[in-house]
């Protein structure tokens, strides 16, 4: 049996008196690629936030790498929704990706050569070499999304959480983002929140629909022999 990376047991979350997640039981093993689909407000982002330790749960239990959520920051890469950022922020692609090294550094410690090498590797992997000095405000939606993925990769995570990486991106760019994610699934455990049910079928190993309660479809029903 593979090691369990994420384990939720009867997990419930209340936000402002409303039950957003109810009695969720879920196990994500090493090397899994889980797609979370479901309607808006179904609790997909909330589940990611619980796994990251940003949201408290009211009942049940959650374990990430065998510890309470939020206790292993250096092992998780997080790609938040692109639309929440201030595009006018004066920061280059390089400095944005460098932020991915934060979890590896101590307070007061400045970034060193190793950090910069990891950043260069992540930027190459995401195919952003030409844009490395570009200000993020001058990137297209798809390029910014890949930069955010590169930021998560720069921290050398074992688990990658992606929150709607292809929301409002044109279809051609979507494929380049999924191609990038496909390259990563060989060496990472991935949880992907998405609406692109048609596109993800050939990549993922597990699909779960989340609408307050969770329903797991395993093995992947779209391509059963995958």
């Amino acid at each position: 049996m593979r090691t369990a990376i994420i384990e939720c047991d009867c997990l419930s979350v209340d936000l402002g008196g409303v039950r957003v997640l109810d009695g969720l039981t879920l196990s994500v093993g090493e090397g899994d690629f889980l797609a979370l689909v479901g309607p808006n407000g179904g609790g997909k982002t909330t589940l990611l936030r619980v796994i990251l330790g940003l949201e408290r749960f009211s009942a049940g239990s959650a374990r990430v790498f065998g510890e309470l959520p939020g206790c292993s920051p250096g092992r998780i890469g997080y790609v938040p929704q692109r639309l929440f950022f201030d595009r006018e922020f004066p920061i280059s692609v390089r400095d944005l990706v460098l932020m991915g090294r934060l979890s590896k550094k101590k307070l007061f410690q400045h970034y060193n050569r190793l950090d910069k090498e990891r950043v260069d590797e992540a930027i190459c992997l995401a195919g952003l070499e030409r844009l490395i000095e570009r200000r993020i405000g001058d990137l297209s939606g798809g390029e910014l999304q890949r930069a955010l993925i590169a930021r998560a990769l720069a921290g050398e995570p074992e688990l990658l959480l992606l929150d709607e990486p292809t929301a409002s991106i044109d279809p051609q760019m979507k494929t380049t983002i999924y191609d990038l994610i496909e390259k990563l699934k060989e060496r990472l455990t991935i949880v992907l929140v998405t609406h692109d049910t048609a596109l993800i079928g050939r990549y993922v190993t597990k699909v779960a629909t989340l609408n307050v309660t969770l329903e797991l479809h395993e093995p992947n029903p779209v391509f059963p022999n995958h």
Partner: peptide, 18 residues
């Protein structure tokens, strides 16, 4: 400098990074 940059740009990511 790196901590202040992180909380200015993306406070949630800074929290996730510990």
């Amino acid at each position: 400098s790196k901590e202040f940059l992180a909380i200015s740009f993306d406070e949630e990511y800074a929290a996730v990074s510990g």
